[in-house]
Design a binder for these strands. Structure first.
Length: 538
DNA sequence: CTAGGGTTAG
């Protein structure tokens, strides 16, 4: 059939009708038609076919036709650059995370962000929508593309051919939030106000997310409180911000106000509420919302909701309840659920349960580097050194590598990046001198580095050294040297903070009288006067 | 005279 259609290009309207009438139509069939239509003269036909594809999915249920990895290359054959760019951004939207693997299969013709960029670069004088389409495509990119967005934006400004609007700024603000680049974010906010660009609820959401992501929950709340109108996603962003900062009570209050305001509650809302409860140890409240979410809000619990509740129970030490939920839940548990329970088994010292969960996790996700570290740490905790060593060897032989830890430091709008054991910073020498001074002063206050959390990240002989050189142990000294006394230190980490660095940051905040705001992979830590806002519960 | 935009646990 498909071959027939390829031959049928002169009779395109007929085959088009065939697609509409054939039961059931398939994407494969539609792609075959597109192939016929995608010679340059047939762009209108190709586009109408595409709209048929994209309109019938994924909103309609059941989705009949969904563009797939083969749809877009066919369209590109016919499209001029500006149309191709719009289509390319569509392809990123539809194919999402799959785009990267598609590019490998299909060759460098389209689909990934790289192909959007190639299409964009073919446009001689990009107009505003073209810039916006490209920036938005970067924003949706699975792999972090925040610096690319900021770089493109600064090129756009310096070229001066088009003026950014609020849609452009949404992409820029999103990038600032991801990087934790408070300085740039404030600049973008000021730009919006100065140019009198519309601050609608989409912009509001972006600003709330950016400020929360940069550790300025106060500014996020201010933007949220002064916004003229808010929808579900505005509320969700604010709730998520409160959750990440451990403000569980405030999140529950906001949730109550949301219900009072008539703005609809969705699955993401409930997820944020559950996450708030998990981070603030509000277990009873969390369980109550979880139990009634279906009856009271009409939202069926999904895997994320179960994951959040398992995490909440596990952190709180109710390991048996967490295990019970895993066994009773009507959905197949995923690797993340086992991981949060295993991490809790390590913390709460339930090694027997932890080992059982390791068996489950191994079946689910044998390749993930995080799993191996988790497993090795648990074995180390059990003093089962042979198994721990074996796990580490397995990692090596499988070529699995941990992603290197990094810390970003925002100082007066300038970003400084530090990696583990980094020696590339211009002020490296001063930093390492400071590292030693801090160690000395902390040990006067009774701090002694424990090596448990890094045991299996490094070879035995480097253990004590590497501890000192975790990326935040370089960023903090640099901030102490280079920023004004009394100003808060803001750090964005790519991984979770280890117990020892957490302890050390608490002491630095007291000994040096500095507030430290640290965003880690999962949440925020506000260190002040020797205490952390997470209450050592993370 | 449009295009182009926001939330999601571990």
């Amino acid at each position: 059939m498909s071959l027939l259609l390829r031959l049928a290009s002169p009779a395109l309207p007929i085959s088009h009708r065939l697609l509409c009438s054939s039961l059931p139509p398939t994407t494969f069939l539609a792609n075959s038609l597109l192939f016929a239509a995608s010679s340059p003269r047939c762009l209108p036909s190709a586009l109408s076919l595409y709209s048929l594809l994209s309109l019938s999915s994924p909103m309609s249920s059941p989705p009949l036709l969904r563009p797939n990895a083969f749809t877009y290359p066919l369209l590109f054959r016919a499209a001029p650059p500006t149309v191709a760019l719009a289509l390319a951004t569509h392809s990123v939207k539809f194919l999402g995370a799959h785009a990267a693997s598609c590019d490998r299969v299909l060759g460098p013709c389209c689909l990934t962000i790289a192909s959007c960029r190639r299409v964009f670069d073919r446009i001689a004088c990009p107009d505003l929508p073209a810039w916006n389409a490209l920036l938005s495509a970067y924003m949706r990119c699975a792999s972090s593309a925040a610096d690319a967005i900021l770089e493109l934006f600064s090129r756009m400004i310096s070229l001066g051919t088009v003026r950014p609007n609020e849609i452009t700024l949404v992409a820029v603000i999103g990038a600032c939030g991801e990087l934790g680049a408070l300085g740039h974010g404030v600049w973008a906010h000021t730009y919006l106000v100065k140019r009198q660009l519309a601050i609608n609820r989409i912009v509001t959401t972006a600003l709330v997310e950016m400020y929360a992501g940069c550790g300025r929950l106060d500014l996020a709340e201010h933007v949220f409180a002064t916004a003229s109108d808010r929808d579900t996603r505005c509320y969700n962003a604010m709730l998520q911000g409160l959750a990440a900062h451990g403000h569980g009570r405030a999140a529950l209050d906001l949730f109550d106000r949301m219900r009072g305001s008539g703005v609809p509650v969705d699955g993401v809302t409930i997820l944020s509420v559950l996450c708030s409860c998990a981070h603030a140890e509000l277990v009873d409240e969390g369980l109550e919302y979880f139990d009634k979410m279906e009856i009271e809000f009409g939202i069926e619990p999904r895997i994320e909701h179960y994951g959040c509740v398992v995490d909440m129970l596990s952190r709180a030490g109710r390991l048996d309840d967490a295990e019970k939920l895993i066994h009773e839940m009507p959905i197949v548990p995923n690797a993340a659920i086992y991981r949060s329970l295993i991490r809790a088994c390590d913390i709460h010292g339930n090694l027997e349960l932890g080992e059982r969960m390791i068996t489950e996790l191994r079946q689910h996700d044998p390749d993930d580097s995080g799993n191996h570290v988790l497993i090795a740490n648990l074995y180390a905790r059990m003093n089962r050194w042979e198994e721990a060593k074996k796990t580490r060897k397995e990692m090596k032989s499988m070529g699995i590598d941990k992603s290197p830890g990094s810390s970003l430091l925002d100082m007066n709008g300038v970003l400084h990046e530090f990696l583990v054991g980094d020696k590339t910073h211009p002020a490296s020498k001063e930093i390492y001198t400071m590292v030693e001074e801090i160690e000395a002063r902390l040990s006067e206050h009774g701090h002694r580095s424990s090596t448990t959390s890094v045991l299996f990240d490094v070879e035995e002989e480097d253990k004590a050294d590497t501890l000192t050189y975790h990326s935040e142990r370089l960023a903090i000294p640099f901030a102490l040297i280079a920023s004004d006394p009394g100003t808060p230190i803001r750090i964005i980490k790519n991984l979770r903070v280890c117990a020892d660095c957490h302890e050390s940051a608490k002491l630095v905040s007291r000994v040096y009288g500095r507030e430290i705001v640290m965003r880690d992979r999962t949440r925020f830590h506000h260190f002040r006067e020797g205490e952390c806002s997470c209450g050592d519960f993370w």
